[in-house]
Design a protein around this nucleic acid. Sequence first.
DNA 1: GCCTGCGGTCGAATCGATTCGAAGCATCGC
DNA 2: GCGATGCTTCGAATCGATTCGACCGCAGGC
Lengths: 335, 335
Amino acid sequence: MNIGEIAKRAGVSRSTVSYALSGKRAVSAATRRRILQVIDDVGYRPNASARALAEGRTRAIGLVIPPAGRRLTPIQLGFVADVVAAAGRRELDVLLSPSGGEHDRSFERMVRGRRVDGVILMEVRLRDARAARLRESGVPFVAIGHTADAATGYWVDLDYQGLVASCVRHLADLGHREIALINRPRELLDSGYGPARRALDGFEAAAAARSLSATASCCPDEAAAGETFIEDLLAARPGVTGLVTINEAALPGIERALRRLGRAVPRHISVTGVVGRHWAEEFHPPLTAADVPITDMAERAVELLAERLAEPGTPPRNVLLAPPISLRSSTAPPP
Amino acid sequence: MNIGEIAKRAGVSRSTVSYALSGKRAVSAATRRRILQVIDDVGYRPNASARALAEGRTRAIGLVIPPAGRRLTPIQLGFVADVVAAAGRRELDVLLSPSGGEHDRSFERMVRGRRVDGVILMEVRLRDARAARLRESGVPFVAIGHTADAATGYWVDLDYQGLVASCVRHLADLGHREIALINRPRELLDSGYGPARRALDGFEAAAAARSLSATASCCPDEAAAGETFIEDLLAARPGVTGLVTINEAALPGIERALRRLGRAVPRHISVTGVVGRHWAEEFHPPLTAADVPITDMAERAVELLAERLAEPGTPPRNVLLAPPISLRSSTAPPP
DNA sequence: GCCTGCGGTCGAATCGATTCGAAGCATCGC
DNA sequence: GCGATGCTTCGAATCGATTCGACCGCAGGC
């Protein structure tokens, strides 16, 4: 069932069918009605490949996710679903591609094979090989997180620096004097992963500004690691009364360790940070924290990409999101 | 940069380039070398749309996920990444489509627009509108879970019935006499979601066979719900010493409630069931449970689909996986 | 009454691949 | 020496859409 068949049944030429569907040229009301009727009867849909070939665009975007090996955090996973939903609203399909290691072929297929019109690149590093590849291939892309040369690209990011600084000031305002940052894994920080880097910067700057005694360390993305992290931390610095975390995967372990060590939240120790809403609410007691607005980020990323596709050549745009800190019940003045 | 340009630079016709690349006809070694050299120099890749149009297949598959609104469980999310990886190994790209409600347009685009060669359908119901739609459109698909007419389709599923029965027998063997099943949410069970249905069947049959006192109830997919579930259960039936769960999202709440109520695992109460490995290991103490083999399921689903695409008309095949129960430390004889 | 303008429609070219039939050219056997 | 054979290679048709230029008929202006 192709456009020729529709044309035949409606008694018009193929081009007329195309125009009736796209509206790019006028078609008389009677003819259009007849054509639409036939289309509806037989359930016709233009062949996506043929259309893509003729139009020179695929109406699909690529979403490059971190490789499957490394567990995706719930934030990232929710983000994928939200991107698909946002793209769907704009009649765009989403092609998924892992990146890194053995998956580079998939990335190359997508990019060089012109399978997609543009790409959303998740979890970008300050220096990022994939971003460089896209740039040199001339494929429009929007990064989640920003690269070292932030000014030249399109990106959406969270203001981790500002948010973590707000958390620190919140603790300082409550009277805390000795605090600690629970960062993402060391390898992410070392490889120049923006959020880890900037969280650290924001933490140190804000702590220094308020003259707090502060330590920052990394913790693997796992509950078990969170548990030992807390044990080690409180053994080394028993005076810590405020915790700031951007590591949501470690939260269940943090909660367990604090409970086991008899440190009640928030009576003995306050906990805050930047984590997905879901995780903030599952913590006991619910975390006072900046909720990562994944749905918002997904929507903005797709919006930026759609805009860039529609009007190539416009100067790069970017979005830095700074959601408010949701007051729940995990912070209080120190004992 | 298209095949014509490559042909010109290599001094051959376009068809020769195509044959050199596909190997579908002989090309002399010298010519092939020259062509490949040019291709390598300019970094050429065939245009996916043109190729799809000519070949009549897209080399892409669709993955229909549950709608974004309902939170994806970690099992489902890991599955998505694993499907993409498995498809990549076969040079297949993956198009994501949510289904249900407002997302049906995306589903239709994929199916009717011939964007994909075949589809993997997640979380299938016993009677499933999407499956029916695919069947009537003639699009090959593999279901995760099986529909009411299991014999006529391709599917991959977990033997929830057998696995839950094994868990029950394991508890019975240890001497437990009063047990409970923590199922997935009621609306899933009612809508004919296979795993929930079959877990219940397996639970009741095995409990009856061993003359155990058994109750089965549903629990929303949330930690908080797990907590109240346990409170209610133990209030109503304080004699329960064995729990079987297929609801991984409720596990953190189950753990918290048991701890708060002073029921040590496994000393006072044993816990087992069918959950993702990750969740089993995060539980304290680690769960003795059947680990949902998502990577395996993803691989088999893609394998089945690839096979079906390669040889249409072969009789339906299906795979029922029954992973072993991993002995960890959450079960023991009753007190 | 003729030319112009315009709404509506058609035919043909185009996008970039694959694939089929046929042609060119040695080599080989008789 | 001539036709048959086999290996390479080429040219043209094809896939199913979009889009451009042209054509046609009709109304309006002078």
